[in-house]
């Protein structure tokens, strides 16, 4: 088990990352709270040692994605949120940011994931394949398709 100091540092350091992963999966604040507690408790109770900060971050991203998937599969999950409610959550953003995020959220889940990991976190296809435990070629295909769909969604708003 890790110390409270370690956990405190991890929450401060990776809370935004976990929040973003939750955002592309859940679209819901209440579920995000649950995922936060699940992910950081798992981190607290884990005795795994990380080679670097990047390694630690990748582990937290993978755990968050798995927790989100589990929650989405959960039979007992009844909290569903409409896209309108999601828009309400992002009302504080600028129009451009809001449009971009709405376009991302319209993509199928697997494309949302690779868009975030590749374009925001800067992971390469092989790195994403490792995190998601998938074939590299599949990831390459997903990135291309996601990019194409996102461009279509945003029309001329998305620069190359």
């Amino acid at each position: 088990m890790r110390s409270e100091q370690d956990v405190n540092r991890a929450i401060e350091q990776y809370a935004d990352t976990v929040k973003r992963v939750c955002f592309i999966h859940l679209k819901n604040h209440a579920d995000t709270d649950d995922i936060f507690q699940t992910v950081f408790l798992k981190y607290a109770l884990s005795s795994r040692s990380f080679e670097s900060a990047e390694h630690e971050k990748a582990w937290l991203i993978r755990v968050t994605i798995n927790a989100c998937k589990d929650l989405l599969k959960s039979f007992f999950r009844s909290r569903t949120v409409s896209l309108e409610q999601v828009k309400e959550q992002t009302t504080t953003l600028s129009d451009t940011d809001n449009d971009v995020l709405q376009a991302v959220l319209k993509l199928p889940e697997k494309y949302r994931r690779v868009i975030y990991l590749h374009y925001y976190e800067g992971y390469t296809a092989p790195q994403i394949a490792t995190i998601l435990n998938k074939n590299v070629n599949t990831i390459y295909t997903d990135i291309l398709r996601a990019r194409k769909m996102l461009k279509q969604e945003l029309g001329g708003e998305l620069d190359d």
Partner: peptide, 24 residues
């Protein structure tokens, strides 16, 4: 554009505090 958009998403202090409290 994607970076800018995702950068605007943050975990608020209340969420961090609730998480810390629960995990500890």
């Amino acid at each position: 554009q994607l970076k800018h958009a995702f950068d605007s998403i943050h975990a608020d202090e209340q969420l961090k505090a609730t998480t810390k409290d629960s995990v500890f």
